[in-house]
Write a protein that binds this DNA or RNA. Structure first.
Lengths: 187, 187
DNA sequence: TATAATAGATTGAACACTCATTCGATTTAA
DNA sequence: TTAAATCGAATGAGTGTTCAATCTATTATA
């Protein structure tokens, strides 16, 4: 059996995505996780802290998934495209995670912290990319712009696919990944 | 003086962006708009309806802004780029609108309705674009994918600029607009 | 080994508080 | 005079959090 902290986090995730922050009372989290209200306060300081921890929990496992199957000595465009597919696939296969991340990061409670690290492997990946950009391998764009033009698009598309607004097969995805990375090529 | 409905909507907008849905009591909206609670319920059925109306109000004025200065007999890439700049500029100049739209559209209360029209001019613009895509002027991508690869990027970047994470000047914007529309060119 | 002592886990009723909404009274405008 | 606009106190439902009490497992003692 999973440990209780994880049970509580997963129950919270499901309810938050279905109903939103304030329409998810702690009593409901208790019911969903088949635990008592008290035990939730035993493991988490309060509701706000619980949700904050849920965010780190999910953000971290998403970041880890990004680098799955990417050999860390490799660089270059193929790696970027692999990461792009990883992102899209993770989003589509984990709709609760995706919708929660979007909901949370667009809420007023969220404060972006640029120095926060979720996984050192990922920081390394990012600094390699930064290096490539500075050396003219890719277009000279701020890293965040680079992100929005590539992985950001994967996120948007995945949200559409989760909502069944579109249905992209691997051929279409290949085309799109090519296109977005063409757009950040050095000119 | 603005009519009371507008006063209430603008007060709600400000509070929602600062605090979020449930941390914005109706009593606070009343205080912010210098009206009574009762009068809010005179003009709006309930809090939910008020927020729904706020969404339409803002979405519509954003959609209108997209087409500002675009002659409706014109088509082609220059028009698309103009619309892209319009979008970015509107977002950056109306941060409350932008943050609210994102917050609302990523909340569980929001249900996307593809048939909903906010402005007939815009529908016309979209169907022209659709036509161009089908005729091979642009890459053969679903319209929503096209959107996410172009205007969607403008929205993401504008959010970053609002949050002061980046600062894009007109040269950088020109470069980015070129790049995103290059990526949806027919190949 | 058997028993006692301790710490931590768990429960859910009780508390204090906030909120959306209502509505009777009052004011304003036509 | 009449209808609409406006007010804000009152209502009642629902909330996050606390906490005294109980249970469980581990450790210490004899």
């Amino acid at each position: 059996m999973q440990d209780k902290e994880t049970i509580i986090l997963e129950a919270t995730l499901k309810l938050l995505v279905e109903r939103g922050f304030y329409a998810t009372p702690v009593s409901e989290i208790a019911r969903q996780s088949k635990l008592s209200v008290g035990i939730i306060y035993h493991y988490f300081e309060n509701k706000e802290a619980l949700i904050r921890q849920l965010y780190f929990h999910i953000k971290k496992r998403f970041i880890m998934a990004l680098l799955a199957g990417v050999p860390d000595h490799l660089g270059g465009l193929e790696v970027l495209k692999k990461v792009w597919f990883n992102a899209f696939t993770y989003y589509v296969e984990h709709p609760l995670d995706t919708l929660f991340l979007e909901q949370y990061e667009n809420s007023p409670y969220f404060i972006f912290n640029p120095d926060e690290s979720f996984a050192p492997e990922f920081d390394l990946f990012v600094s390699k990319l930064q290096h490539d950009i500075e050396n003219g391998v890719y277009a000279n764009l701020p890293l965040l712009v680079f992100y929005d033009m590539t992985l950001g698009v994967a996120m948007s598309l995945a949200k559409r696919q989760i909502a069944k607004m579109i249905e992209l097969d691997s051929v279409a995805l290949e085309k799109i990944a090519d296109a977005v990375y063409r757009s950040v090529q050095a000119v």
